[in-house]
Design a protein around this nucleic acid. Structure first.
Lengths: 111, 111
DNA sequence: ATTATATACCTAACAATATTATGTATTATT
DNA sequence: AATAATACATAATATTGTTAGGTATATAAT
């Protein structure tokens, strides 16, 4: 991701995208994050693909390849275990974001 | 920090703490983050001290040591350059948090 | 008195995660 | 014909944090 910030959230972002979209391929995820963040955030493919492979290896995602317009697309979906883990990871990330928000916004401390 | 999330935000958190408190020592920072986050977030000293040293090395912080109750305290403060960098880093982190919020909360997408 | 906890600093070896730099291949656009 | 977009991927390196340990003083508990 750009700006060297928020490393460690990539896996959670992938899982969340798949929870919302049910079925996505890698390149599509990079475009989705770019669009959702108004070009502010970028997932590099060099970070994304190894992360996806690890999620498959860990049993959280399954894949199915298709050829579309002469090019390969490798679709990813959440497994049952992946759906569970998605909830856990999202809650953990939300909690962390809240903590950081409090540190960044003193106004919230007295509100 | 706990839970292997939000790596890369440590430096910004340090700078923000120093912006708010003007003068802090390392151990104090670990306590502050623990308290602000209601024990949800922990800065480990093994992550903190090298980060502080690097910020000094980069000219963003200065130090002054004192002996209090027979123990050494190494106080850190923002330099002029550090104050500038703090603004930049905070803005970048806020922007990243917003992007992640949008991805995590679909409700915000249609709001 | 002794043990444990809290305060306060620190480093070394290792692991996880992302960046930079490439590479391959097809299709669409200029 | 050249460039950009689509779509996958890896290797070398850098960054950042974890695990595990170390030193030392002060205070509270047994």
């Amino acid at each position: 991701m750009d700006n060297r910030i928020l490393k460690g959230s990539l896996t959670t972002i992938i899982l969340k995208l798949l929870e919302d979209n049910h079925r996505m391929y890698g390149y599509e995820m990079t475009k989705a994050v770019k669009e959702l963040s108004n070009e502010k955030m970028t997932i590099t493919e060099a970070a994304l693909y190894p992360a996806l492979h690890k999620l498959v290896e860990d049993g959280l995602l399954t894949t199915s390849s298709e050829i579309v317009d002469g090019r390969i697309r490798k679709y990813y979906s959440l497994t049952k275990e992946g759906k569970k883990e998605t909830q856990t990871k999202i809650e953990a990330l939300k909690s962390a974001l809240e903590s950081i928000q409090i540190i960044l916004n003193p106004d919230l401390r007295n509100g």
